[in-house]
């Protein structure tokens, strides 16, 4: 089967059946995405390449746990997310993983592609300058949505939270991003 015509899920299935070279196809497809995700999420000069390599190694070790009826993208993003969160350090990891109000209750947030498209340009400009100033909990959804362009459902699977929580964090993340951006603009304006 031509590797180019294979879906991610088909490639993963072939790996599971004993064709490890097919894993190279998946590495090629996701390497740049995960490197970009890592650089934006960690936002420091971490050794992103080493972490991403570890992510792929972990993905290969656990490939038999992947359900080929589900999408591969959120599965590998989840492994990457967990690796990046671990890199952030214990205190941040604890803040991200402890029960928080976003996940306790349902929230009336929904995905509106028209609104999101209008805001994309504005948010994109702010992300370039101010993303590092935003708390990791909101940074991760901003990166996954605006930079990795994952839909709410897949972000929910990556973060293991309800879809409504994704909406809430995205809304709050945009607000935090805007505040950080405006603060940076003010700071630069005074220099």
């Amino acid at each position: 089967m031509e590797a180019l015509t294979l879906t991610d899920e088909e490639a993963a299935r072939l790996v599971q059946l004993g064709e490890p070279e097919m894993f190279g196809v998946l590495v090629e497809r996701y390497e740049e995405k995960l490197l970009r995700y890592g650089r934006r999420f960690l936002s420091k000069s971490e050794d992103i390449e080493d972490i991403v390599q570890d992510v792929f190694m972990s993905a290969y070790e656990n490939i038999q746990d992947f359900d080929t009826h589900a999408r591969f993208s959120p599965w590998i993003y989840r492994i990457a997310h967990n690796a990046f969160v671990n890199k952030l350090g214990k205190s941040v990891r604890d803040r991200l993983r402890l029960i928080d109000l976003d996940t306790l209750l349902s929230h009336p947030a929904y995905e509106d592609p028209d609104i999101e498209r209008r805001e994309w340009k504005e948010v994109g400009k702010m992300i370039d300058k101010a993303l590092a100033e935003v708390a990791p909990k909101y940074r991760e959804v901003l990166v996954l949505y605006y930079l990795e362009e994952l839909p709410y459902k897949e972000i929910a699977d990556v973060l293991s939270v309800p879809q409504s929580t994704v909406g809430v964090r995205l809304k709050r993340g945009k607000e935090a991003l805007k505040r950080a951006y405006e603060q940076l603009e003010r700071d630069h304006g005074t220099h």
């Binding site: 991403v52 390599q53 190694m57 070790e61 656990n62």
Partner: peptide
């Protein structure tokens, strides 16, 4: 990165 991963798989240093 791809070469490292495939090399480890081939050398049985990385297994499922």
């Amino acid at each position: 990165i791809k070469e490292n991963i495939l090399h480890k798989i081939k050398e049985n240093k990385l297994s499922m």
